[in-house]
Design a protein around this nucleic acid. Sequence first.
DNA 1: CTGAAAGCGCTTACAG
DNA 2: CTGAAAGCGCTTACAG
Lengths: 351, 351
Amino acid sequence: MAKKRVTIKDVAVAAGVSTQTVSRVINNHPDVSAETLDRVLKVVKEIGYAPNILARSLIRGRSNTLGIVAYGLEYYGPSRLLTGIERQAAELGYSISLNLMHKPETTDVESLLDNLQARRVDGIIWSVPEIGANRAWAREAGLSLAVPLIFVNGDPSVTAAELIGIDNLSIGRMATEHLLSGGARRVGLITGPGDWWEALQREQGWRQALLDRGVRIDDDLVVAGDWSAESGERALQELLRRNPVLDAVFASNDQMALGVIHAAHRLGRRVPDDLAVVGADNIPEAAHFWPPLTSVRQRLRDAGAMAVRRLDQVISGDDSLSGSGGPRVTLIQPELIVRASSRSAAVVGGA
Amino acid sequence: MAKKRVTIKDVAVAAGVSTQTVSRVINNHPDVSAETLDRVLKVVKEIGYAPNILARSLIRGRSNTLGIVAYGLEYYGPSRLLTGIERQAAELGYSISLNLMHKPETTDVESLLDNLQARRVDGIIWSVPEIGANRAWAREAGLSLAVPLIFVNGDPSVTAAELIGIDNLSIGRMATEHLLSGGARRVGLITGPGDWWEALQREQGWRQALLDRGVRIDDDLVVAGDWSAESGERALQELLRRNPVLDAVFASNDQMALGVIHAAHRLGRRVPDDLAVVGADNIPEAAHFWPPLTSVRQRLRDAGAMAVRRLDQVISGDDSLSGSGGPRVTLIQPELIVRASSRSAAVVGGA
DNA sequence: CTGAAAGCGCTTACAG
DNA sequence: CTGAAAGCGCTTACAG
């Protein structure tokens, strides 16, 4: 199987030209006579020559590869994000070097960054969720990378590099406002794990929505989950124990919302009549829960694609990552998708 | 930001040794004196040298990169698979070049394979689902790749390369046997799209289970879905129209099973008392559907990890892909997870 | 234990 | 329009 590799030299000899001319042909340089072109192309085809990209990259100082650092592909969000990244990257001629973190809280990322740079990626997209101080490395003494880097999601106020993300605060606010304007009086919150930036932002949105309406914020209304459906079940039980008159819940993701619905069934509470429920992420299954789940949609594929385009601009020198006034921040607005889990029975019916 | 790269030469000059000695140090070769080692290491640290992997790969003829071709990361199965692949690859010192297909039915994969080979990946894992003739390229005149390739899932009987997969026939059989032994008399089948190998195998399993029990196989019991929950809803309606006495359904994945449950609710059929339901894949949400869904679990992360280990063996020359008697095939057995959607009400309660 | 030389497979100026 | 020369940043034998 592993036959000896065909090189540019083999082509040159077979075609009776210099390697230089072969190089011109395979790189579509203009100054080649028609007959030479044909001859070289024919030989390339015949002996099955494919240029060694490694050698090319070495010389050009550019690998046309993007390093992607991610976490949690088994979740809906991260995989959508990655899909968007890959697709846009392929379109722009980049290949993707995928690096998954196993423990996203890790603050020690030096060897990973070294590795990425050793492989000479042209740019890095960091889409590991911001958890606790797991981006401290980027803030300490600034980023001293030889390679441009973009963060996807996370705290824009203290970021050391450009950031593209979803407006997570809006997610919490839109969900809560919707519940309040539907007549809910006591809206419980099930947050994600306390040190996740996205969880904190969604909670902040919940608070703002209550504040705007002049509703008193009661910490008894907040229970932390861990994003899983199971934690959603437990959280609802806890919320009901503390607040027997609870009439609505915003769960910070759809899995936890599913757990809430499940627990509500078991406890004999009707959704939405006794308890209105809203989730976040708008996973495809959400429309088919019983009842169908109201959720907030994030345009994650778009976010991924945008990150790649920006990185490409910087790599190509069309733009610099740090303009005046600190790193650039782009936030994408989410969108509320209303379904039966938050509508009174009279209105139920549509998708 | 993009400062001039530090090279091995810079280190050599600063440390007062030859580049050769520096090379020995960074590659952990034994024959270096303790003091030289220290001095070089110190310089490396000081000037922040990181070897250019591209140059190393060029010489060694090995990139330590695996090309992964996949499809459908937004689905549970493919993302689990990829997670398993990445993790095992990282452990073995490989980096991952991720290539996503947008249209999995595509039969023209030549440019993709050329590209992978041009980038000098050491091996390829092909985990695009087998659909129709989308692997014909591998069978025509055998595989003429300069790089070892392993398929994940697909038809093992005609494969042109080693294959590691889940026994999809067993999935269909286990699900159906379970329904029959629970007392079901008419077990409907909702298949995946007709040209997907996995869908065909699961259907085959359903047929075998019925045959084994001596139950007549009626084509009115089969409706095709497209893996989505929505198609599951439609399929159940169609099944009930054709078979008013239907008392069980095997849906070929959990999303479609979710649609079935949803439709059953709307039609006033109780699950499992009027209609027992089994899905496949065992997505995390399955345990929290209402009622919790019986499903068949596939060890996809394990399958991914196995594929990487095998590829590594071949790359390292520990083994060859084609032994005597054609390509090697490894099938992993699935596992039935019983929950309330297929148990009579009296037994409901557990997991 | 260490270094001078050659070369991996290409591309980039530089001549002509 | 084409080729001889140099070099990208390393590692691999080969001497000593």
